[in-house]
Write a protein that binds this DNA or RNA. Structure first.
Length: 587
DNA sequence: GAAAGTATGAGTTCTCGG
DNA sequence: CCGAGAACTCATACTTTC
């Protein structure tokens, strides 16, 4: 859920005013002094990084440039699994950030090794608790080795079970390649054709071989990513973040058997629960960074085509339970013609689409649809293969529907609302252009509701939420449709018209809870958070999707990654979540 | 000044035939 | 296994219209 139209992000909260003059000054003096005197310190402290970590990062960065310092901090965080949550521990434990820089990485590695080495009996116990057979668990240990984490072991058992199912099940191997419309759910845990994400080194790291070596060694620990253990030794490879071939996440409502089990790192245990969303097809390394910042939790990649008649490939990082999810009712139409039956009469046979592509923020011009109409009128029915191909290309690109003989048109705003799971005319209060933009930036309600459904049992008396980048209120609508009462909502949204829209919806739907709206994530500080926590006792859920403008392929001009003007607001999501955890721990 | 209209690819993965 | 082509993507900048 993003409102990015006018969201101009600067990084002033982590930069100093005279940051440009900072580097020569730091280079001039030596080590600690420069670091501790640096005015970058308060900014990074504010983000929740431990003081010693920041000192180390400033020293190591050499040039004192805030971006490279931030990069280093991200790496350290991933190595140490450190967030502001264990800030006090890190601060008080002198050894955790030893002054001897030469031993720094060794210590990190040691810590991680220790963390990964639970006793075997403990792991077996966990697996049995997860519902696995003792024998299955034992043979998984044999397969994966004694160092494997409980999560890896569960992965292995699951893969073995699924392999067995496919071997003896009723799957027709010949149909395995007919998954054009994605009705075959590859359990992504043992999909060998998965796309590969970068190893986590951002472009600014690529020329630093030494640093990258450390990164490769430590990144993708069992606790953070799924790792394969094939039978042969050459099947073993470095753990990396993968984008699954079919994005079914941790299981789908219509396929309950394909659930996976996961164990979250202790630091990630809720409450507060959190839920973060962004585009799945981001530039290399982006999801690695986001995952590292958010407790090293692997993203759940889901294509909303499994929930509606439109594709929407998104990644979600959250610490919600994943057992006993349920589907929002009524289940929306799953194909284009089920969604818009009245268009069937005009739909030519040669348009084989059953799903729309991703609903974006702008729609086709009338000039284009007129051109298509003119072209089709000039030819007999059916048109030549060549014309057909050209028309279909435009139809797919712009999600056009057939509204008359040889006539196509873009979806109406209320049709987009319908496909995304919003009530009709949810966005009627804003201009047509703005409706398309806000809807294109929004959640798919059914998908998000499926993930959030587990909260219903946990919070029968209602939840208190912090909604960042609220947009048109996809999270709120999802919770409302699930029948989860919102006792208090702190919503942050840049666009005034979207804020008004959410406010109207809040009143119209008779919400009893309190809705507080803020216009900028950069304004969300401890004072605001503490005020809410004092009034309401805390937050149960921190939810939001930060701007994707600099990540999406649709952006031809500024697809520059997480450091982009808009997408860098992700760091505020991280900052605010960290502060919420810290402040709630204090109370 | 707000709203609507229009031209503007790259980067990456997927597909399929050899 | 490999390579060429198809397919897809929460958009931006500028102009025109109202």
């Amino acid at each position: 859920m993003v409102s990015d139209s006018d969201e101009s992000a600067d990084l002033s909260w982590l930069l100093n005013d005279d940051e440009t003059q900072l580097s020569p000054r730091i280079q001039g003096c030596s080590s600690e002094d420069a670091a501790s005197n640096s005015s970058l310190m308060p900014h990074f402290l504010d983000m929740g990084f431990p003081r010693k970590m920041i000192t180390k990062a400033i020293e190591e960065s050499g040039d004192g440039n805030s971006e490279s310092v931030l990069d280093l901090l991200l790496i350290y965080s991933s190595l140490a699994g450190t967030t502001s949550r264990n800030e006090e521990k890190a601060e008080s434990d002198e050894n955790s950030w030893a002054d001897d820089s030469s031993s720094y990485f060794d210590e990190m590695d040691l810590d991680l090794e220790m963390a990964g080495q639970d006793s075997i009996s403990n792991k077996l116990q966990v697996l049995v608790k997860m519902g696995y057979d003792q024998d299955e668990a034992a043979s998984a240990v044999k397969r994966c080795g004694e160092d494997a984490s409980a999560f890896e072991l569960a992965d292995s058992i699951y893969a073995a079970q699924t392999a067995k199912e496919e071997e003896f099940g009723d799957c027709d191997p010949s149909s395995a390649h007919e998954q054009k419309d994605g009705d075959k759910y590859d359990p992504f845990l043992h999909d060998h054709k998965r796309q590969r994400f970068d190893d986590g080194a951002s472009s600014s790291h690529r020329n630093n071989n030494q640093r990258r070596g450390h990164l490769n060694r430590a990144y993708g620990r069992p606790s953070t990513t799924i790792r394969h253990h094939g039978g042969g030794s050459d099947d073993d490879r470095e753990a990396e973040l993968f984008l699954p071939n079919s994005m079914v996440g941790f299981g789908l409502p219509m396929d309950p058997k394909r659930q996976i089990y996961r164990k979250l790192p202790d630091v990630a245990q809720g409450p507060p629960f959190f839920y973060y969303e962004n585009v799945a097809l981001a530039p290399r390394g982006v999801w690695d960074t986001i995952s590292r910042m958010l407790d090293n939790i692997p993203p759940e990649f889901v294509d909303s085509q499994y929930f509606s008649a439109a594709c929407r490939k998104r990644g979600y990082i959250h610490n919600l339970p994943i057992a006993n999810r349920f589907h929002l009712k009524p289940v929306p139409p799953q194909t284009i013609l089920e969604a818009f039956p009245s268009n069937r009469a005009h739909w030519p046979e040669w348009d084989k689409r059953t799903k729309f592509n991703c609903l974006q923020t702008v729609v086709a011009s009338s000039k284009l649809t007129e051109k298509i109409h003119a072209e089709l009128k000039a030819y007999p029915n059916p048109p030549s293969l060549d014309v057909m191909k050209r028309v279909m290309k435009e139809c797919r690109k712009w999600n056009l529907i057939w509204i008359g003989q040889k006539r196509v048109a873009p979806l109406e705003p209320h049709e987009v609302e319908f496909l995304l799971g919003f009530p009709r005319d949810h966005t009627r209060s804003i201009s047509r252009t703005e409706r398309y933009r806000s809807l294109g930036n929004s959640f798919n309600v059914d998908t998000v509701a499926y993930h959030l459904s587990v909260l219903k049992g946990i919070y029968p008396n209602g939840i208190r939420i912090l909604s960042l980048f609220s947009g048109i209120g996809g999270a709120e609508v999802a919770l409302h449709r699930l029948g989860i009462k919102m006792t208090a909502v702190l919503s942050v949204e840049k666009s005034l018209s979207n804020r008004n829209l959410l406010n109207s919806w809040w009143k119209e739907t008779g919400q009893e809870g309190e809705l507080q709206e803020i216009d900028d994530v950069r304004k969300v500080d401890d004072a605001i958070l503490e005020c809410f926590i004092r009034r309401h006792g805390g937050f149960d859920l921190v939810i939001g999707g930060s701007p994707c403008n600099n990540l999406t392929g649709s952006n031809r001009l500024h697809r520059i990654g997480l450091q982009g003007e808009h997408s860098s607001l992700f760091y505020h999501y991280y900052r605010i979540l960290s502060r919420v955890r810290y402040l709630m721990g204090k109370h």
